[in-house]
Amino acid sequence: MPATLRRVQQWAERRLPALTRYRRPEPLPIELHRRRIYIVPTSFGLGFTVLLLVMLVGALNYSNNAALLLTCLLGAASAASMLVAFRTLDGLRLQNIRAGHAVAGQPIDVSFGFTSHRTRCAVRLDAGDTGAAFAVDATRGETDVTVSLATEHRGWQTLPRLRVWTTWPLGLFRAWSWLHPEQAVLVWPRPEAEGPPPGGHAEDEQRQRLHHGDDPASLRDYRRGDPIRHVAWKASARHHDLLVKDFEEPETRRDWQLDWRQLGRMDHERRIARLARWLGEAQAQGRRYSLWLPDEPIETGSGPSHYERCMNALARLP
């Protein structure tokens, strides 16, 4: 019996992929075709059908052929709009998916790239509770549709089943198709709200503050962009050109070596949250930093791509 059920299920999956909920995630690109596009009348479509029936009965009752012709024309146009709705989805291709960055608990922007040979309009994409409407211009290559998805936990988050649908052109019929791309998006861990700075770096902060003094070390020629209040007016008066007080550059900050092993006493997720906070602070202060994780030691570096790499590694931790 289970074998029969499975066979039926496999057949349904093969023949009616959009309707069955058993559809497994599939690789990109996903192209919509007739087997996975379904059409039903909208509530307005049902109401309009009733209206057409009333018009039909009225025209027949009064044996008014002109009214009958008008009713037939309107009915046939409605039926044709069903095919237009189908054609709006048929051949639409989900080419790629790009995700932005977000920490757990914040919505993540996922952008879906659609391509098509034809221009289509009024297509809508529902993902979870949110949706977006878009038009695909065949001449412009890929059309990106960005949707914000809610996140809860760090790590790989599978995409919900996507519904692509349209009621184009008259709103009488609703064509839809389910997409289940196997892509997942990586959600970064949420940094802890507050905590101590990385161990052994406390005095570093102090030195930093000391160097925020105001004493000019030397004078140099004015360069465009120097703030007016840094101009040494008295000294400039004795020269041809403006002179500017040159403040001493703060001393290069110490690199941070962030290490998973330093936080041995804490539980797994709090360790990750703390490392995430440190990474964020280091990035905000423009420091160079390295990160050691159990399977993935990352050497010293800086900049957004380095930060991204470290956060991705944190997010991927088991």
């Binding site: 309009c121 809508r124 008259l170 709103g171």
Partner: peptide, 11 residues
Amino acid sequence: LATLRVLEPAQ
């Protein structure tokens, strides 16, 4: 018919 079309988004 044009009114019904205009009601659709993203065109």
